[in-house]
């Protein structure tokens, strides 16, 4: 059993709602989760299960209407650099700053690292994601995969309590995505950070995750939580991978026909 002092993130009965011009949408309903140190915790679910909304709430960008989120025992009330977010969109990088400038920006903005120390840290993280040569390039000169590396380096350099990744590889082409997944794992092997990773891809969940939380659609509720670390290091065509994938597939799509019935949803 995990130790209480290794508990990084805890969500208790989190219900999230947001407004669209026409509707009040309930994104998640009474979701509980616990993320421990060193976890590669994946939130998996079909689109519309509120997984991104849940991540936003953990990021502090919206408040739950019910339930609480705690980071290292402190209640989450607003965004902060102790939870660095990596988004899917390339626009998360500041186009007016170089790769190095982007990595340095949160360090300087928060005042957490300064001067030479910040610069050395930034360069060392950039070299860890294989971008040493591109430290002085502007984002528009970089490929999609490289931009994502910069975003990851930027988040990592802050040494957050937890790294929040919102479908970070979804906008990349399939080959680059696979490469990035492997690189993320390699980086994790080196640094052992805690990461919360949102995806709608079962394959990605198994590849990247050590523990997978499956959410049911409309509104997102906890359906299951599975261990997947035993698959880690196995080839994708290994039987264990296929079995787990099938199992998750069933969990995700079991409600499909039932959920499709009401039909009216934006």
């Amino acid at each position: 059993m995990a130790q209480a002092d290794q508990l990084v993130l805890e969500a208790r009965g989190v219900t999230l709602q947001y407004k669209t011009p026409q509707h009040l949408v309930t994104a998640t309903y009474r979701v509980d989760l616990e993320v421990f140190e060193g976890d590669r915790f994946v939130i998996l679910g079909p689109s519309g299960c509120g997984k991104s909304t849940l991540l936003k709430a953990i990021g502090g960008f919206m408040a739950p209407i019910e339930g609480d989120i705690f980071l290292r025992g402190r209640k989450v009330v607003k965004p902060g650099p102790d939870r660095m977010m990596v988004f899917q969109e390339f626009e998360q990088l500041m186009p007016w700053k170089t790769a190095l400038g982007n990595v340095l920006f949160p360090m300087h903005a928060t005042g957490r690292f300064k001067g030479k120390e910040a610069r050395e840290r930034a360069l060392s993280v950039l070299s860890k994601v294989g971008l040493s040569k591109f430290a002085n390039s502007y984002p528009h000169m970089l490929s999609g995969g490289m931009k994502m590396r910069v975003a990851i380096a930027r988040a990592m350099a802050m040494e957050p309590d937890i790294l929040l990744m919102d479908e970070p590889f979804a906008a990349l082409d399939a080959l680059t995505r696979r490469r990035m997944q492997e690189d993320l794992l390699e980086l994790w092997d080196q640094l052992r950070f805690t990461v919360l990773f949102v995806t709608h891809s079962i394959e990605e969940a198994i590849l990247v995750g050590s523990r997978i939380l499956v959410l049911s659609p409309h509104p997102g509720r906890v359906r299951a939580e599975l261990n997947s670390s035993y698959v880690h290091g196995q080839p994708v065509d290994d039987a264990s991978f296929g079995l787990l994938s099938k199992r998750i597939h069933k969990l995700v799509f079991e409600g499909e026909t039932e959920a499709a019935k009401p039909g009216v949803h934006a």
Partner: peptide, 28 residues
């Protein structure tokens, strides 16, 4: 872009600092 705004707020920027360091260059 919303993502860029969220990135800025992620670092705890708000008020004038947020406008000067994120919005102004982004809207330049």
């Amino acid at each position: 872009p919303e993502t860029l705004r969220m990135s800025g707020r992620n670092y705890g920027l708000s008020g004038v600092r947020y406008v000067v360091t994120i919005l102004m260059p982004a809207a330049f």
